[in-house]
Design a protein around this nucleic acid. Structure first.
Lengths: 212, 212
DNA sequence: CGGGGCCTTGATGCTGTTCAAATAGAGTGG
DNA sequence: CCACTCTATTTGAACAGCATCAAGGCCCCG
């Protein structure tokens, strides 16, 4: 609400191409990129690291909107203010670009990008809604692991988020998350090396349990 | 999937203004306006009655996307096909308009309308996601009753949807819906006349229970 | 070596589901 | 208009899944 926008140094590095006119900003793990209820003047493109968006209710309950990785665009809002806040899950760099003319429809490079990002956001939010509506804890966790794995090239997947983040994304508790992960590992579907790194041993089995 | 688009008679009534070029179509209670997985060629504006959008999963579980009333626009999709189907909750009329050029960004009347409708849809889907994520059955029902009441002028609110529709919207069962409505009525917060008509007796109390 | 998060594991309880049955209500034909 | 049927809704009782509460273990880092 009352947080100041990041101050941009005059000699800050500037991107070219579609993001010409943007400014590169760096955030440390845990730092806030923008706050809930803050004016939505800027949109951001992730170029390093990963980010979560969070909605906090008055009674303290927390809902994670989504997790964003390199290439994703965040900060697109329907109204004038951010409905979610954004925090860095890891150290990260973003390109920040001023939204030219509010949400009004205008031809132009930036508007076109906002339009595309809004459409993408709608699709992701719909998927998230379907996930929260009618799925068991096991299905939720299985689909989550699948979605994350699909975004990674390599065999091993690194989770940038905590169990609490996963819980607040899926509408569960950390204990339930932990138990479901344990069960999936016991069944040989996935294999963890430490708590933040896993690989999928039986993709077919995992997608069956996801049961979309 | 394989359903044909509605056949438009040559002399069908045509609207003017923003919806110039659209065709008025009439559907009976229960009829399908468009199907899940069908090509999304048209967008629709509700001019009479009410409509639900539905997503059906392979295992039969059903999730209601949203409920739409006069003035709302439905059929806007991110991809090329409908992710939800739309069915008439009551007899209803819609204006159907062809999407000019896919989802590509182009200046123009229809594109501008699609853009605005997409933004509205995103906001509604976000609210729905937050509702499904972390709310008790009582909170879900209270918020639902509030949202519906906000859309009506008069003292009494008519519910066009069944208990099953409410349940599939809120991610609950019909029994739980019925019990929560009973509890709210016993507490004097709402008052039903028959199962599809109610009025809010204590708005402050209702919004407290909604606890957004 | 010690401290402090974060994560896991176990025991217990509550919320919402499931199964079953009764009741109310809407539609239909006599 | 009434009786009948079929569906929608309500209500009750038992159950299941996930939450809550409470320890205990792991790991990172000083």
């Amino acid at each position: 609400m009352s947080q100041l926008l990041p101050v941009v140094p005059a000699d800050a590095p500037v991107a070219t191409g579609d993001w010409a006119g943007s400014v590169r900003l760096t955030f440390r793990r845990g730092e806030e990129i923008y706050a809930q209820d803050e004016d939505a003047d800027l949109i951001y493109r992730v170029v390093r690291g990963s980010i979560r968006t969070t909605h906090l209710q008055s009674d303290g309950r927390r809902q994670i909107g989504d997790f964003y990785y390199v290439g994703d665009i965040i900060g697109v809002e329907v109204g004038d203010v951010h409905r979610f806040s954004a925090e860095a899950l890891t150290d990260c760099d973003v390109l920040a670009l001023r939204r030219a003319g509010s949400t009004a429809y205008e031809p132009g490079r930036v508007q076109q990008m906002i339009w595309a990002a809004t459409a993408t956001e709608l699709r992701r939010t719909q998927s998230h809604m379907l996930l929260l509506g009618r799925a068991t804890a096991c299905e939720k966790v299985a689909r989550f692991l699948m979605d994350i794995a699909d975004r990674f090239r390599g065999e091993f997947v690194i989770l940038p988020m905590s169990r609490q983040d996963m819980a607040d994304y899926l509408g569960l508790t950390i204990e339930t998350i932990s138990r479901m992960l344990g069960r999936l590992q016991a069944d040989g579907v996935i294999e963890f090396s430490g708590s933040r790194k896993y690989r999928v041993r039986r993709p077919g089995c995992l997608s069956e349990m996801a049961a979309a």
